[in-house]
Design a protein around this nucleic acid. Structure first.
Length: 575
RNA sequence: GGUGGGGUAGCUCAGCUGGUUAGAGCGCAGGACUCAUAAUCCUGAGGUCGUGAGUUCAAGUCUCACUCUCACUACCA
């Protein structure tokens, strides 16, 4: 048993997340956390809302509420959505908490003491009408390259050219539409990532168990030459830039730290909040000194889950913060990066309302359906296409037919012929030997896929185990034997019931609601639901003779073609 | 523009350091069974592995060119 620290990239506060966000960080992290817990590991799974930045301020403004209130409200909504998807965070924090303020400021101080922070002046567009500096993206104007009139300050959507907002013709604020904008000097703190490039490269090269996606993105940035990054912004909402005594740093009134500086620090701060609320010790997870944490290679394994857009920040910027502090912080061991879930050829998009969002998803199907489909089709190697037809197919085939029907057929048969009790008798034969051999190869394989965080493969293996149950019943055919030899029928039923229990146990990380229904119907006590498989040959005889079971209600209602047609209409997918 | 992924059966995807007849699921066709949510099980059809060259005894797997597509490109997060 070991300690496994798990974090999902922090969902941004601005609105309910879509299924792409869920599938690319929170859901796989939860599946992994659950599996690791079942294997007996000590797990700390941390997530939080990322609450700072311009979009949060603007969204609050648009909603006509104070930004703090807005964030509180959205935090509660996201927390509720996560709970409805059965995400088992040990703690779901907020990046705007006092703990994160203090820790972020602490890091800035020690980084500056170590010579890794420098104050520089840059030019930024200021909007008089809005009374604020504008990020490049929020300045629009005519593209100097192609004359497109709604080019953004960072890139023209029409010709794709990268732009500097200063180059735009007739620039205006995309917030208010005002053309009363000007370029002003502004001073900011820069994190000297370039000084850390060699150390980071060594660290990335030494990393093991990262998907190629993560390593290649990190090395790409290093190869292109790591640039120093501004870690402050001209905003009111955020973490103030302070001196060590807590007073505001001179010249940094009206400025706060950049969200990307404070967001990863929130992983630690949220752990502190978790510890404070639960009486646990956060340092044993995050510090490598004093015999705590990762000392001597034992102890904590830290795994981060994120979409590919987050890799640079987690593989380079955040490590720069931690290593640069000179303090004994735990660095990530495994970065699990995902591609995108695509939606009928394009990306899910919050702003364009393309795709399905977490709250809508639960209106149309139970969380188990989504958990299964999105994990079995996780965008691990490539972007993964989401279609309603595929969703319907995997739910109906995998969940309803292969798993649900298996549970249903054998439990009902047991109820009808054996009074709902695990029957004794019968001699194991060819079918039983085949089944045991199947389990002996597949279960260890499944465990190793989980350990390697290969989600698609783990799901395929899980499904194969379920399918083996159906094949076993075909071979054992208790309904045939029952006519001539009840004992021979009994062993088929008994093995079948033990498989139901096993399937429930294996399903827990993925489809927790259905797993619980199965295990409850099988009368399996809570402490017998772990993944301590021991001798796999014993699994098929684990239930005591005479143990009472019941047939659960239909576990998975099928998705009808009419549902697909309806959803296609409502959500604009298809074609 | 630059960089990095991809382009493998009708669909969604596996294929590690090159090595016998290229795999899975879905879908499709045929068969079996009847305990079960018309579910399940078996068998089968179906691919010149984006295009064109090259290296090699041997390439989906390496090299080059071309093409299509997606992402990233540091002030959205």
């Amino acid at each position: 048993m070991s300690k496994i620290l798990i974090t999902s990239a922090l969902p941004y506060i601005n609105g309910v997340k879509h299924l792409g966000n869920l599938a690319g960080s929170m859901l796989p992290a939860d599946v992994y956390a659950r599996a690791m817990r079942l294997m007996g590991h000590e797990v700390l799974y941390i997530c939080a809302t990322d609450e700072h930045g311009t979009p949060a301020e603007l969204a609050a403004q648009a909603a006509g509420v104070d930004v703090g209130q807005y964030c509180t409200q959205m935090h509660e909504e996201q927390k509720a959505a996560g709970a409805q998807f059965k995400l088992t965070f040990d703690y779901f924090g907020r990046s705007s908490t006092p703990s994160n303020h203090a820790l972020t400021q602490h890091f800035a101080h020690v980084l500056e003491e170590n010579g890794l922070i420098e104050e520089r002046v840059s030019q930024q567009v200021y909007s008089n009408a809005d009374g604020r500096f504008l990020p490049d993206r929020y300045v629009e104007g005519t593209c100097p390259n192609c004359d497109f009139e709604k080019a953004r300050g960072d890139q023209c959507d029409n010709c794709g050219k990268l732009l500097d907002p200063i180059d735009l013709i007739n620039p205006y604020s995309s917030v208010s539409g005002s053309t009363d904008v000007e370029v002003r000097d502004t001073n900011h703190l820069y994190l000297k990532q370039s000084d850390m490039a060699d150390k980071l490269r060594d660290w990335v090269n030494a990393a093991e168990g990262w998907p190629p996606l993560a390593t290649s993105i990190a090395l790409k940035w290093l190869d292109e030459g790591l640039r120093d990054r501004a870690i402050t912004r001209d905003l009111k909402w955020g973490i103030p830039v302070t001196n060590k005594d807590g007073s505001v740093r001179e010249g940094f009134e009206g400025k706060v730290f950049y969200v990307w500086f404070d967001a990863p620090i929130e992983y630690i701060a949220a752990s502190q909040d978790w510890a404070a609320e639960t009486g646990n010790d956060w340092e044993s997870w995050w510090r490598t000194d004093n015999g705590k944490g990762d000392k001597d290679g034992e102890g904590v394994q830290y795994v981060q889950f994120m979409g590919k857009d987050n890799v640079a920040f987690h593989a380079l910027s955040f490590p720069t913060t931690l290593i640069g502090s000179g303090e004994p912080w735990k660095l990530v061991d495994h970065i699990k990066a995902f591609n995108w879930v695509t939606w009928y050829g394009g990306k899910f998009s919050t702003s364009e309302k393309r795709g399905v969002f977490m709250d809508q998803a639960l209106d149309i199907a139970p969380s188990d359906y989504w958990r299964w489909h999105l994990t079995a089709n996780a965008p691990e190697g490539n972007d993964a296409a989401f279609t309603w037809e595929e969703f319907q197919a995997s739910v109906n085939s995998d969940l309803a037919n292969v798993l649900g029907n298996f549970v249903n057929r054998i439990t009902k048969y047991c109820g009808g012929k054996f009074e709902g009790k695990v029957p004794a008798g019968g001699e194991p034969g060819e079918a039983e030997a085949w089944l045991v051999a199947e389990l002996e190869t597949r279960i260890p394989q499944l465990v190793s896929y989980y350990e390697a965080r290969e989600f698609r493969k783990a799901m395929a293996e899980t499904r194969a185990i379920w399918a083996a149950g159906n094949e076993y019943l075909t071979q054992a055919a208790p309904w045939t034997h029952y006519k001539t030899d009840v004992e021979q029928a009994a062993i088929g039923v008994r093995y079948g019931l033990n498989l139901v229990a096993l399937f429930g146990v294996l399903a827990q990380p993925i489809i927790p609601d259905a797993a619980d229904k199965i295990l409850s119907a099988m009368n399996i006590p809570e402490d017998n639901r772990t993944w301590n498989f021991g001798d796999i040959a014993n699994i098929v005889e684990a239930l005591p003779i005479g143990h009472e079971i019941s047939a659960p209600d239909v576990l998975f209602a099928k998705i009808e073609d009419t549902d697909v047609a309806d959803w296609t209409e409502r959500f604009g997918g298809g074609a």
